[in-house]
Simulated scan of single mutants.
Amino acid sequence: MTRRYLFLCPDSRKASGGIAVIYDTVETLNRAGYQAAVLHNSPNASYPGRQTPVPALYTQSYRRAVLPYIERRKQLRERLDLPLERLRGGRLAALDLRPDDVIVLPEYMMREGLDAWRENPIGIFVQNPFSFMTAYMHARAAGHDPQARVSWYIGVSEVCMDQFELLGIGGAHALPVSMNPETFPFRAEKERLITYMPRKRPEEARQIVEALGLRGRIGDYRLQALDGMKPDEISGWMQRSRFFISLQKRESIGFPAAEAMAAGCIVVGYTGLGAREYFTPETGFPVTEDDTAGLVRALEGAVAEYETDPARLDAMRRHASAEINRRYSKAAAEEALLKIWGELDAS
């Protein structure tokens, strides 16, 4: 029987780079002839905006494993909802688990996933190294031995690989994922527009906008929050925007800054740590984490330079876009994924 890879996935219907990566991975593996499916926790789960459908199933095993770790009121509600949901059913078929199914767990679902699937092979797909460290320690505290129980680990960034090394995890696989820079095409002509995504740092975003307004040093540039928008809307704004404020926080890679660079924005702000692998003084204006005053001054300085002599910054943003497309293209990500999977499937 052909080995099957089941990627446990959160059920959020909001746009999420992490969920998009899981769906892209399953799509690529199926195109290459592997048996792979997204494994949701509800029969009516889905992810919006997918152009190509991918195989998807649902299971309640993870939700049952979560029960001991949540407060009593939520426990009681879940214990009532689970049988009712199974009875009602939905768009997804229930998982018929096979002994050789490989369960691929997102890093933050590690402890409960190891509780739920004690016999099946387990792989850990790490997209957030910060939550991975917490989940790893929680799994050990729950009595699991990840070193013995987990068959393999995949990390999507240099920060992930650093965490593996710190924990003594050998033989982990580095997978450079794609933020699909092709969907954020470079545009040379820009408007007097500064965009930002406030979701990770809403209070700080408000402080920055207010400070820029009070100081009056960005001239007639307009500020636009990119919040609650669809991916194609975000792409459109970034293509129009000359500057982008990066408010990334505790990232593995950090897609927003990379998307903005691909679209030709001059990026100023935080790397979120993980974006250090591409967000450098050669591709933008990285600022020390949490230094709000430093960010405001760096943006004002970049605007002033562009208004005086834009040549250096135009060259910077062209270089940044080329680097993002070279490092994080869909083709490069798929090639790396299939090379890794060839090794995993043969083991």
Rank of each mutant, 00 (worst) to 15 (best):
Y5M: 10
I103H: 04
T283V: 04
A336H: 10
V102Y: 03
F244K: 08
D309W: 00
P198Y: 09
W341M: 07
E204H: 06
E112N: 06
A205R: 02
A45Y: 00
P202Y: 12
G18T: 09
N44M: 05
S12V: 12
G123K: 09
S157G: 09
E323L: 15
N41F: 04
E305Y: 04
I253D: 02
M261V: 04
N44K: 08
T283K: 01
G17H: 06
Y62M: 11
I266E: 06
Y306V: 01
I70C: 01
I19P: 09
T134P: 05
V156I: 14
V287F: 00
R326Q: 12
R318E: 12
Q51H: 15
A293E: 15
R64A: 02
K330R: 15
R201A: 06
D100M: 06
M238W: 08
G236M: 01
A315W: 03
E282S: 12
R199K: 15
I324S: 06
K200F: 03
C265N: 05
Y153N: 05
E323W: 10
A142V: 09
S246E: 05
M110E: 09
A56D: 02
I245C: 10
A148Y: 11
K200G: 04
R192S: 04
T183G: 01
E335Y: 11
A45H: 03
L95C: 11
P286Q: 02
A320V: 01
D145K: 07
A332V: 11
A333Y: 02
M229S: 02
S252V: 10
L344A: 00
S235N: 03
L166F: 14
F184W: 01
E165D: 15
K230F: 13
Y136H: 06
V268D: 03
D162C: 12
A174I: 12
C9E: 00
N30S: 11
E305K: 12
L212K: 03
E165H: 15
I324A: 06
I194M: 07
N41A: 11
D96R: 13
G301A: 15
R215E: 12
T2F: 13
A320M: 04
G171D: 05
I234Y: 04
S16R: 03
Y69S: 12
P185V: 03
A260C: 03
A20S: 14
V21N: 00
E251D: 09
Q127K: 05
V303W: 01
